[in-house]
Amino acid sequence: MSLFGLFKPRAATAPVARERLQILLAHERVALGPDNLIAILRDEILATIAKHVEIAPEAVKVTMGQQGAVSTLEIDVDIPTEKITASLARQMPTKAVA
């Protein structure tokens, strides 16, 4: 450490804390909020698919993101090919990203 370093004010860390919190809480409020939107959506999507195809609960992934002013909802469903009957296979893609 140079002698000048002793007198140089240290970089402010509070703005970093503030920004990290704002980003984190924006995500957590959506995921853990009172409505728990993601969990509800996930359960309902799973129930709808399960009516037609045998599916593991972990196969449905719902994530919500935010880029600037736009919120995106991403639904990712993995369905094993062998579980789909021939007729369903023609109508439904194996992976749907909305």
Partner: peptide, 16 residues
């Protein structure tokens, strides 16, 4: 410490 930017300020916490 808050005024030196070492600690979250009152306004920061209130806004968050």
């Amino acid at each position: 410490r808050a005024s030196r930017g070492e600690m979250l300020g009152v306004a920061d916490v209130l806004e968050i």
